[in-house]
Each structure stands twice: as C-alpha cells, then as structure tokens.
Design a protein around this nucleic acid. Structure first.
Lengths: 335, 335
DNA sequence: TTGTAGGCGTTATCAC
DNA sequence: GTGATAACGCCTACAA
C-alpha cells in the first residue's frame, strides 16, 4: 500500500520494468502506443522514480553538497542564492550544510556527511574560514569529490572562486586620492587573510602617493556597526584632521557615519567615507554610502559552473586556476 | 579503483559484510577484536557508508526537503538558518530548493524533485505564497510526505508554524495610543493575507478607541524603502497633521523616516514610527526604530521539531493545530 | 559471534 | 520493440 514503484507501473501497463525505464529516459525507442499506456499508468498511480535507486545504479547523484556559514551576513546568503539558481539550471539538487556560531559539528563531520550522500561535488563557502588549510582535506586524498571554494583565499592550488580583492580597494583609494583627500584613515577588519591584503594595499597606495600611512591611521574592528563606531572614535582622537576613511565593510562605514555626525563633521564635504560589500542598507543610510559592490550571487553561479566542469571532466584533477570576478565602485553620496 | 564499499572493508578485515554493518550500527554484538580490526580497515580504506543505499533498504532517507524563497529578505534566511540548526541536531540532512524571482520552476516540479529524492518530510517557507492553496498539494493525496508550512496563512487544516500576527500589531498600536497619539496612519504591504489582517487590526483598534481610521490614513506600499518613501509622502499630503505611522515592515519605516526628516518633522517628538520585522539595520538607523521583533530562526527550529514529530508519528495524518510563536515589541527611539 | 542469501528500486546487457 | 536478468551498496533474516 506504500508508494508506487517501477514494477507497479509495469504491471499496471502490462509491460516490463525495463520498458517503463526506457519510456521515461528515452534511451531506447518505445512504441507510441506503449508509451502512452505507460504514461497513463504513471499518472494514475502517482509514480515518482526513486532518485536514490537511480543514483545507486548510475554511480552518480546529481546532487551538490554546499557548506555555508550561518547566513547572518548578506554576502553568504546571496552566494547561496546564486548557487541554487545555477544548480537548478544545470539539473542538480542541493544538499545544504551550515556552519553555526556555536560550532558543534566539525568540518570533517560535514565532509563525511556529504561524502556519504555521494554528492557529485562540493562547494565550500564559509568566509569565516579564509584559510582553506583549516578545512583539512588532505586526509581524504583523491576520495574527495571535486570541490570549489568560494570567498576563500586563492593561490592554494585548490579551485577557488572569489572577487578581485586588489581591484576593489585600489579603486576606492584612487577615488579618494583623486578627490584630493590627504589623510585617509583605515578601519580594518579582523586579522584574516583578506583584511591583511586590503590593509597592505591601503598602505602601498598611500606610500606611493607620499601620503601618511603609518599605523596610527589604522583601527582594527570587527565587522559590526558598533565596531565601526568605536574604531572611528579612536581614529578621530588620534587624527582630528583626517579627511577620509576606508572602511572594511559597509557596517563599519555606517558606524563611522554615526560618530562623524555626532562629532559634527559633514560627510562628504569634510570627511569622505568608502564602504565595502554594497549591502542593501548602504543605499539608504544618510548620506548614502559610496562603496565597493561585490558580485555575491554571480560568485555562487560561477562556482557551480566551475564545479560542473570539474565533475564532467574525466581528466585527472590538476591544479585549478583561480577565478576572480570583477568588483565595482558604486558612487553615492559619502565620497 | 573507485570508492571503497562495505565488501572491500569486509575483505580487508577478513570478515563478512554483515559483520561490518553490525560493527558500525551496533545493532548486534561484535567481538572487540573484530570490531577493532574493522575500524582499522575502515580508516585505512577511507570507507564512508553509502547513505543512498542505506536509505534504499531502510525505506527512509533522514533528509528533509526545504523550499524557501530567494533569500533576498532577512526573514527567510534566518528561518533557513533555524531549520538547518534543528535539522542537524535531529540528525537530518537538508535538501534545499529555492523559488527565484524569474520563477521558471513550478511548485509541482519542486515537489516532484523532493518526492523523487524520498525526503522524509518537507518544510515550505515561501512568504510570497501566503495562500497555501497556491502550492496545490491536492493532487499528491497521501503520497506527499509530512509537510509543515512556515510563514504562511494558518487555519487551513494544514500544519502551519507562524508568529502571532494579531499580537504584534496590537502591541504596536496600544503602545502608540498609550503615548497619546491621535492620528495614526498606516503604511500597508501588498495585498496578501497577512497584510490584510494587519490593516484590519489597525482599523479595529483605532475604531474602538474612537480615533480616525478611514481609508485616507492608509497607503499601500511594496516592501521596499522607496515604497515607504512614496507612501509617507502621500500620507503627509493627505494628513499633514498625522502624529504616528504604523509601517508594514522596517524598510517602509526607514523610507518614512527619510521623508519625515526631509519634511523637518522630528521623530519621535512630532511623529512616532513603528516598524515590523526587526531587521538588523533597524537598530542603527537614526533614530533607531521601535519595531516588532519576529522569531524567524525559532520559527525554523519549531518547524523542524514539528515535522520530525509528524514523521515519527505512525498515526494517520490528522488536521494539525497551528503553532503561533510570540512576538516582541522592541522599544527604541522612533516611538 | 559470525557467515550467507535475498531484496530495496532502478538501469544496462543480453536475448528474442 | 520488448522482456528477463544481473548488478549498484547496503541491511536483515536465517543459518551455523
């Protein structure tokens, strides 16, 4: 009395199970009359082929394993949306696994779960873990399905899809300098690989331009609005005469905005601010944030396309080139 | 040369496949020595049991199908986070399917996909489809696995987990009236079931209090900041003397805030505003929004718990009671 | 305590 | 064009 299977359909349509299979897959011809009879039986019986059994015999699952963070941040949920979009288009289902704040489940447990589900490939999109080393894949050797990393540090020999880190900060800095800003402070993010890169670029560009770039112009923050407030406060104490701020993300920029408003510094006439991420609210704070727009959803789509290519390529896995998508400086009011 | 299976392990450990199975499941005793030998073989061979094959023979998949929207809104991604959290805790994996803007895939295709994957249950969390009718489940009859709806209209005989719609709006209105507000306008959302409910409550409470509540005090908006701006603009034209606004969500409230600032109306001294949702940015706009906090993540967790209960109950599916979680009025600056 | 055989639902191979 | 049969990897009676 349970759910109908291919044998039930075969019996109902007076054919063999193999013929039902062929009628559905079209891999071998079936006479139009039989075809119709089978289709009728399928709909009256409400038959849905069992993907699990199909995967078992075919040896592949048309399922992609995705590991993301808790989705508290705008970026990762956009990435996930992009992943789902492209996966659906390529005929893959998605098995989702999230890394939560109180991280009880280890990376290995997640990977084991995905491997046990025989996913065709894995997308790893956990920006909190910038270092791909931390994921600890070595032990799996070549038993690991093809894997693509999103929003993680490139140049590790693994397949990474990311945005162009250098380009974003460079554009922002050039914009500020072009505007004649001389004392450009930097609110840096936590000590991750990309934060360090961006601080380095900030430093190098100022140094080349002969502008001040010592450590007193840098305040380290977390990624939050209050963090930005505190950092801005400190910077203003150190350098009351600063005329621009490069923030590590929009939330920090918004925090800075609040502090500057409280200190009666006009943005952008007295102080320019550039954010990072282009979260939706950056467009409707006042003044609206000039910021770097990151292609989150496209990152997800690209990762899926790249992964499908890896899956389809029968060749031995070889060092994959990193894919870096372009960013865009979105000009609004704050700079 | 491919991935190791249970026979490989058995051969390597000099036991039968059945013993390996028992060693892993613990369903029947295995001698400590054999146990150890098997565990060693498993780790040297890198064996991971095939969940698909297990599901095939067990007849259940320990996988939950989840249907969400595109995650563009804060609420749904929090719900998804809650779902994943609780699912992991209950030992379920998640098969994710998203409804995108350019919705090419029909509800039926999604359901078919999930059914084919033999998910143990389904969580349907697509606020855009308030009417559970639109999902069109009738055709599946009792072949549909247990299903729980999140953020959808209750009282349909289906199992629905939602927040208490009446309570939120009631609290907000009482708060405004208690403050002595007399002309309380309403920015309503698109014509969905919950929008209508909330407008109704707004009307009834004002009516009971003997305060103006005719249609000229209502402006219909979409869920966006610009929508809120336009609505506020219209309301201000109609009633320059209004002293409070009940917005359908925080984004509309933020839009209203911008317009009021431009019109030189002080918030909250001249005009009070209450939002809805408690999105993160509502805490750091200026003035910070007083708003209704909805238990999004808890909604997701509750849905999973409810679903697991449905799955485990061998009883015939019977009309499920709706579960309504409490909301909270978050007092900040705007009211 | 351990081994053996049958079957879960499907597809591929071989025969007709 | 169609039907029987043997896998896929695993679990579970039943037998030893």
């Amino acid at each position: 009395m349970s759910i109908a299977n291919i044998k039930d359909v075969a019996r109902h349509a007076n054919v063999s199970p193999g013929t039902v299979s062929n009628a559905l897959s079209g891999k071998r011809p079936v006479s139009p009359k039989t075809q119709q009879r089978i289709l009728d039986s399928i709909s009256t019986l409400g038959y849905h082929p069992d993907t699990l059994a199909q995967s078992l015999v075919n040896g592949h699952s048309r399922t992609l394993g995705v590991v993301t963070n808790h989705l508290d941040d705008y970026g990762t949920s956009r990435v996930l949306t992009g992943i789902d979009q492209q996966a659906a288009q390529n005929g893959y289902s998605i098995l989702l696994t999230m890394v939560h704040r109180n991280n009880q489940i280890t990376n290995n447990q997640m990977l084991t779960q995905l491997i046990s589900h025989r996913v065709a490939g894995i997308i790893w999109a956990v920006p909190e873990l910038w270092n791909t080393d931390e994921v600890n894949l070595a032990q799996y050797g070549d038993r690991l399905p093809p894997t693509v990393f999103v929003l993680m540090n490139p140049n590790t020999g693994l397949s990474v899809v990311n945005y162009n880190i250098v380009d974003g900060t460079t554009q922002a800095m050039q914009h500020l300098i072009r505007q004649g800003r001389k004392r450009i402070a930097h609110i840096a993010g936590p000590a991750t690989w990309d934060s360090q890169q961006r601080t380095l670029i900030w430093h190098n560009i100022l140094s080349e331009a002969g502008l001040p770039c010592d450590e007193s112009y840098v305040a380290v923050s977390d990624w939050s609005v209050p963090g930005g407030e505190k950092a801005m406060h400190d910077l203003l104490n150190q350098h009351p005469d600063l005329d621009a701020v490069l923030a590590c993300n929009d939330h920090n920029a918004i925090g800075a905005l609040k502090v500057l408003r409280a200190a009666n510094r006009n943005v952008p006439s007295e102080v320019s601010i550039v954010g990072y991420d282009n979260v939706p609210e950056s467009g409707y704070v006042s003044p609206a944030l000039t910021t770097i727009s990151l292609p989150f959803a496209e990152l997800g789509r690209t990762a899926v396309r790249q992964l499908c290519q890896l899956i389809d390529s029968t060749a031995q896995p070889q060092p994959q080139p990193n894919i870096l998508l372009p960013v865009e400086l979105v000009m609004r009011e704050s700079a």
